[in-house]
C-alpha cells in the first residue's frame, strides 16, 4: 500500500534521520505500533543532536524481517545512487592499475548485485515464473524483467551477432549508471557500465548460461552515451542450444 512521505514519517516507529532520502512506503505492519512523538522532519531536527542520526528500529526488526515485496516499485534517489557509484569507481581506481582491471573490478561489484537480484526477481514472479532453458528466453528475461526492475524501462535493443554464433548484444542508449560520469580523454576506453555488465553476467551464470559480458561505448549523434553489452556465451551453452534445435 502506497502512503505519502509525510504519513510514513508520522506513523513509523523510526526516528527520522533525513527527510531528503526517499522513504519506502511503510508496510501495514508499521501502522499498528504506537507512534512516538516525532519532531517534524526538518533538517534542523536531524542536526539538533537530540535524536540519534541513525535510523534504529524501536522494535528490533531488521531488514531481513521485511517483506520481500515491500520495495517492489519503490524509487531511489538518482543522486544518492550517483554519489555511491562515484565513490565505488574511485575506490576501485585506487586499487588497480589500468583500465582493464578497473572494468574487471566494477564487473565484480555488479556480479554480487546480480546474483542476489536474480533470486529476488525470480521469487517475485511467483507461480508464473519458470526456469529459462533457451538462450533467447534468458535474454528476454534480462532485457525486460531485469531492466524494468532496475531502471523502470526495458533495454533498447537485443541483437544477435552475424559474425559469431556465440555473441549477442544488448543496447542501452543512455545507461543510467553513466548519467553523471564524464570519462577523461586519457581513459576513453573505460565504460563504467561494466557494473551493469557484471549484473548481466551474474544473472546468466546463475541460470546456467555461462558467459562473459563486457560494456562498450558506441556514441552516436543522438545518444552520445550509447552502450552495447556484448555477451559471449561459452561453448557449453551453444552445444545445449544445438541439442534443443535438433
Amino acid at each position: 500500500m502506497e502512503r505519502s512521505n509525510t504519513d510514513s514519517f508520522r506513523h513509523s516507529q523510526y526516528l527520522p534521520f533525513s527527510p531528503t532520502t526517499s522513504s519506502h512506503p511503510s508496510t501495514p505492519l508499521a501502522q499498528k505500533h504506537a507512534s512516538l512523538p516525532i519532531p517534524t522532519p526538518t533538517t534542523a531536527s536531524s542536526l539538533s543532536g537530540s535524536a540519534s542520526t541513525l535510523r534504529y528500529s524501536q522494535s528490533r526488526k531488521t531488514i531481513y524481517d521485511r517483506h520481500l515485496n515491500r520495495s517492489k516499485g519503490a524509487e531511489l534517489s538518482k543522486a544518492s545512487f550517483a554519489f555511491l557509484f562515484g565513490e565505488m569507481v574511485q575506490y576501485a581506481q585506487k586499487r588497480v592499475s589500468g583500465i582493464q582491471d578497473l572494468e574487471k573490478k566494477l564487473n565484480a561489484h555488479g556480479y554480487s548485485v546480480g546474483q542476489r537480484l536474480l533470486e529476488l526477481l525470480v521469487w517475485r514472479e511467483g507461480r508464473s515464473g519458470k526456469r529459462e532453458t533457451r538462450v533467447l528466453g534468458i535474454l528476454q528475461f534480462i532485457t525486460n524483467t531485469l531492466w524494468r526492475a532496475i531502471y523502470n524501462k526495458p533495454a533498447d535493443a537485443l541483437e544477435k551477432s552475424r559474425d559469431h554464433e556465440d555473441e549477442y548484444m544488448i543496447s542501452d542508449n543512455d545507461p543510467m549508471v553513466n548519467t553523471y560520469i564524464s570519462v577523461p580523454k586519457e581513459m576513453n576506453q573505460l565504460n563504467c557500465a561494466a557494473f551493469q555488465a557484471g549484473i548481466i553476467e551474474a544473472v546468466l551464470d546463475s541460470c546456467m548460461f555461462p558467459a562473459r559480458v563486457t560494456a562498450h561505448s558506441v556514441p552516436n549523434e543522438t545518444w552520445p552515451g550509447k552502450t552495447v553489452f556484448l555477451i559471449k556465451f561459452e561453448q557449453v551453452v551453444l552445444d545445449r542450444e544445438a541439442e534443443f534445435i535438433s
Partner: peptide, 23 residues
C-alpha cells in the same frame, strides 16, 4: 552539482574537464 560533482573522475577544486558538463 550534477555533472561535475557527481563525476568520480573530477578532483575537487581542480580545473573542470567534464565533457557532460560542457555538453
Amino acid at each position: 552539482a550534477d555533472y561535475v560533482m557527481k563525476n568520480p573522475f573530477y578532483q575537487i577544486e581542480m580545473p573542470i574537464r567534464c565533457e557532460a558538463f560542457d555538453r
